[in-house]
Design a protein around this nucleic acid. Sequence first.
RNA 1: GGAGAGGUGGCCGAGCGGCUGAAGGCAACGGUUUGCUAAACCGUCAUAGUCUGUCAAGGGCUAUCGAGGGUUCGAAUCCCUCCCUCUCCGCCA
Length: 431
Amino acid sequence: MLDINLIRQNPEEIVAMLHNRQLGSEEPKLRKLLDLDKERKELVARSDDQKALRNKVSKEVADIKKSGAGSAEELIVQMKTVAEEISVMDTRLSTLEEEMENILLGLPNKLHDSVPIGRSAEENVIFKEGVSFEHRLDFPVKNHLELGKSLRILDFERGAKISGAGFPVYIGKGARLERALINFMLDCHTERHGYTEVFPPFFVNRESLRGTGQWPKFADQVYHMQEDDLYAIPTAEVPVTNLHRGEMLDAKSLPISYAAYSACFRREAGSYGKDTRGFLRVHQFNKVEMVKFTRPEESYAALEEIRESAEAILVALKIPYRVLLLCSGDISANATKCYDIEVWSPAEQKYLEASSCSNFEDYQARRSNIRFKPDGKSKPEFVHTLNGSGLATSRLMVSLMEHYQTAEGSIKVPEVLRPYTGFDEITQAAE
RNA sequence: GGAGAGGUGGCCGAGCGGCUGAAGGCAACGGUUUGCUAAACCGUCAUAGUCUGUCAAGGGCUAUCGAGGGUUCGAAUCCCUCCCUCUCCGCCA
């Protein structure tokens, strides 16, 4: 959520931002917000005046009653009218404020100066060119679906039977490999990158979704359990960032860094027909997420740290990747700056998104009221929140399986994962 | 699911119709004292909106005691609904 003061002071800057994000159509909402704000201000002034009067007279009534000198009847009758006026104004006021809040919650975040201006994904900037590692693939490569099936480690058909399309099943060494990846990534972030591990709930309430910005904008992408009014998390970012919702953090505790494994659930409504095969688009996947809470002046350095920690996983696994700096037209509404890390798929012959590292500045902190006192005496400030996937396993698994396949149709286990899997290779005989 | 207790500032905790934005304590911050540390003592210490003021210091007004309604001239305090926490019982794991 943007600071209303910022919008008041410099509405044209916000309008420019909307256009840069290819959201020019939102402009009327912004204008509406400013109108409502003006009306609210006038109304508040009038209401406050009447309240001041009421408070003053109420004290007089108290004095009269206490001293027993004379009757307060006339004053009381007068104040009944005043109270009614106040109630009418306050009713209107709460409608106004609700409308404003709704608009405000729907407005995207500012953009950082370093974000390239562009219309769509085609104009994203390559921040780091393909980082490659040697893999001998001098034979017709199989894709992850073929490998998964022939080695009997992935079963999309049965997943579809028991749940629906997009709910993959890992079997045998496939399941073990998946678990190895998750454990390796968590260990890496906690032991080498200084993160504290969190194992969060997978269902959250609506306040949590609102806190991180998935509500109301992406409400249709989230699974909802109607009975209990709970939502399946689309990413661990939601529960982990909301860990400190409504809290005043100790300045000495910053920066706070959490790494969390979670399953992630996404409806992916409206995205059928594109990249839908196998792991390329799923409703449930596994991810290790990094979340940071920092002082405002430290957040951009922290973003680079998160990106580097995510890259470190790929380097350790020797999986070819590149890093994109998302342009203004492609970056998500909540972020001020975002890097995408994409892994190469030899079978698909293209890059697949495996991580997104974003700075939200105070956008989420303002929504979820996460503050700190910069030093003992000064006013509370909002922290900056950031997060990055480190990483999502599904696309990573695609790239891993494809790169580590052999001419015989087996899959070698990357060196660093072997202590976690307990085996070096997945062969036909696996079961 | 049933019965009870409770939700107050950064934290703990008093208050239970007007003098309470809220006692007291802790923490924090500034200072005095001190060989250093500690202790002691003094002082300062909520947030937001709005008006005023030299876009200053400061001051005025308003709101906020889990959330939302209600009663009342006036609510942290009384009533209703909801949410949450704790204890006991039951049920399931």
